[in-house]
């Protein structure tokens, strides 16, 4: 309403907006009042929800096991949806078993070949039996990232608890694989070959810390990327509303809106890339455990 009146007025003034013109000056004051309103007292009128609200975990079905809170939350719901979607799409798409795949079957085959190639290149033939696990990790992370891109959805990969639990499972599993394959010889991983024995007291702690830091870097990378991306999206979406409701026409809102479109595309790319990086690093760690350098 107000904006419409403002634009009608400016049309009546014939585009003169120099403060020297008295009527344009009056309108200028109105714009300034709008800006002041933005910065000052009744900001609540135009600001949108906090960019961190989207990460709140809300219990849907409150449950508890003794003192432990095991409520079914929105995070758990999204994980369930992700698993159901992955299983549903994969089972449904290859149901017809066409020699020439249809659209959905192509997607399933593409995903399969992508991960199969990744395991073959990074782990070799011994990695073949771990393919189901690697494929599950990839599809779960990717589906979590992509589901988070739906408006109003919860991104479970934006929580360090989720990503660290996954990274820790992978880390412990890979360490056990290495230990069962190589026994105590596995610990030669902690001493770079060719280094002088005298350097061992320094090199071994460094290598051990470097090894133990793997689950942290793996989980922090995924969690931080998803969190930061979603916060930026929310902030720019807020800019669209606040700048669009300043009493200049709707024009200032268009700039952050354009940015938002670009950022959304970027965020889809990041969703794929982070799932990819999470998976390929798991492959590389698995390769280290199997081949010991």
């Amino acid at each position: 309403m107000r904006r419409a009146r403002a634009s009608r007025q400016s049309a009546g003034n014939g585009n003169t907006r120099t403060p020297a013109d008295p009527s344009a000056g009056e309108e200028w004051d109105k714009h300034l009042a709008g800006l002041r309103r933005l910065a000052g007292a009744d900001v609540k009128e135009t600001t949108v929800a906090s960019p961190l609200d989207q990460f709140t975990i809300k219990p849907i079905v409150p449950l508890s096991l003794g003192k432990l809170d095991i409520s079914f939350t929105n995070s758990a719901l999204m994980m369930g949806i992700a698993v159901a979607l992955i299983a549903g799409v994969l089972v449904f798409s290859v149901r017809s078993r066409d020699l020439v795949p249809g659209r959905l079957q192509s997607v399933a085959e593409l995903g399969y070949e992508f991960i199969a190639g990744m395991v073959r290149e990074n782990v070799g033939d011994e990695g073949r039996k771990y393919f189901p696990f690697i494929f599950s990790v990839f599809s779960f992370v990717l589906m979590g990232n992509l589901l988070g891109m739906l408006p109003g959805a919860f991104t479970f990969t934006s929580h360090i608890a989720v990503t660290f639990a996954m990274a820790l499972t992978i880390f412990v599993g890979i360490t056990l694989i290495g230990l069962t394959r190589h026994g105590t010889h596995f610990f030669s991983l902690f001493f770079p070959h060719g280094a002088p024995i005298a350097a061992a007291p320094i090199l071994i702690p460094i290598e051990v810390i470097s090894y133990l830091s793997r689950p942290i870097s793996l989980s922090v990378r995924l969690f931080a990327n998803m969190t930061v991306g979603h916060i930026i999206l929310k902030i720019f979406a807020g800019f669209v509303v606040t700048l669009g409701s300043v009493q200049f026409f709707i024009l200032p809102g268009i700039l952050p809106f354009g940015m938002l479109i670009g950022l959304t595309a970027l965020e889809f790319f990041v969703a794929f890339l982070q799932a990819y990086i999470f998976t390929i690093l798991s492959c590389i760690y698995l390769n280290d455990a199997i081949h010991l350098h």
Binding site: I209, S210, L212, S213, R214, I216, S217, V220, R221, A224, N225, L273, I277
Partner: peptide
């Protein structure tokens, strides 16, 4: 930018584990 972020996390993880231990 992606590479920069990755190596920043690598450094952070090492220091975190060291301090924790």
């Amino acid at each position: 930018l992606g590479l920069g972020f990755r190596i920043a996390v690598d450094l952070l993880a090492g220091v975190t584990v060291g301090v924790g231990m």
